[in-house]
């Protein structure tokens, strides 16, 4: 008798192929790699946020805080220590992890809406504080001071960093979900009381997922602002980052690994299609989010999964 194994390894191969094809087309096709870079970063952030929202049920409206913290940390260490920007990303990850732990302690007793809006208030505090901080240029923002950057290869280097981030994120979360910890997360997603009764610690799982999502968003934000060599508080701590991530995860399907892929595709198709109608694009975005909650609260991939049970990234156990 074989023990329980993960189902549908053929599906896993499909997932690898899909992500490989996406990466390959991103590398081969465009001359201007800014859009593929942004797609990679936003997808990575969405997967990070999804780990928190989709699996532990904590709906954060304040992850723009980590994007800003990651970007500002990078600019600060590069400008003051003179290190390589790509080394600086490690600082972004570290500092954002510390900030996330502090926020987790601050909001320890806050659940549901209290958490959602509490972290939003915190993100707003950070935006206002950074906007008052003269050393980082207050509301004017700051320019990255890295003279050793080679402009001919810099664009490519940033793109590779973004691609690495999204691939590592996608497969790290996939791997994580197939471990004991990940199965615990999915158990919490499905029924927290039942999960707790069989010895899973929801509180600890939530904090780990929260810190992981914060670090991914921080590194994503740092790479994004590194690519434009300039950061300001109104942009880096902008609620629009959070809205983008939320839209992608919710419309694609929270609590699935495939959902954010679909959501990202929809988001960028819509944005490019409505390029000349910024206001209309945002209105349609809001309408799609609301309609999704009305008619397909599990998101588009949730619909597919409910009908077919198919997973590109299989995270279910089956007994053979």
């Amino acid at each position: 008798m074989n023990g329980p194994v993960f189902s549908r390894n053929a599906g896993l191969i499909g997932g690898v192929l899909l992500v490989g094809a996406l990466a390959l087309s991103a590398i081969l096709l465009p001359v201007d790699r800014r859009l593929p870079m942004e797609i990679c970063l936003v997808l990575a952030m969405a997967q990070g946020w999804n780990l928190l929202c989709g699996y532990t049920g904590l709906l954060s409206f304040g992850h723009q805080a980590f994007i800003g913290v990651g970007a500002y940390t990078l600019f600060l260490v590069v400008n003051t220590l003179g290190i390589s920007p790509f080394l600086g990303l490690a600082f972004s990850a570290t500092v954002s992890a510390v900030v996330a732990v502090v926020i987790a302690l601050l909001l320890k007793g806050s659940r549901d809406a209290y958490f959602s809006i509490g972290i939003w208030v915190l993100a707003d505090c950070l935006r206002l504080l950074v906007g008052q901080w003269d050393f980082v240029g207050s509301s004017q923002g700051m320019v990255l001071n890295a003279p050793d950057i080679d402009p001919t290869t810099f664009g490519d280097a940033v793109f590779w960093a973004a691609l690495a981030l999204v691939l590592v994120t996608q497969f790290a979360i996939f791997g994580l979900l197939r471990t004991r910890f990940g199965l615990g997360l999915m158990a919490i997603r499905d029924n927290e009381t039942a999960a707790a009764s069989v010895g899973i610690a929801p509180g600890r799982s939530r904090i780990i997922a929260f810190v992981a999502s914060a670090v991914i968003c921080a590194v994503g934000g740092a790479i994004y602002y590194l690519s434009v060599l300039y950061v300001d508080p109104a942009g880096a701590f902008d609620l629009d980052w959070q809205i983008r991530i939320l839209f992608i995860v919710i419309v694609g399907g929270a609590g699935t690994l495939e959902g954010p892929l679909i959501g990202t595709a929809i988001y960028f198709l819509l944005r490019e299609f409505l390029q000349d109608h910024g206001g209309l694009f945002l209105i349609i975005q809001g309408a799609i989010a609301a309609l999704t909650m009305l008619f397909a609260p599990q998101g588009l991939w949730g619909l597919v999964q409910a009908r077919t049970g198919f997973q590109l990234f299989p995270t279910k156990w089956v007994t053979q």
Partner: peptide, 13 residues
Amino acid sequence: VPAMVATMGLSII
């Protein structure tokens, strides 16, 4: 979550 996301969408609209 659904009501919060739906009203978030409404706020954007």
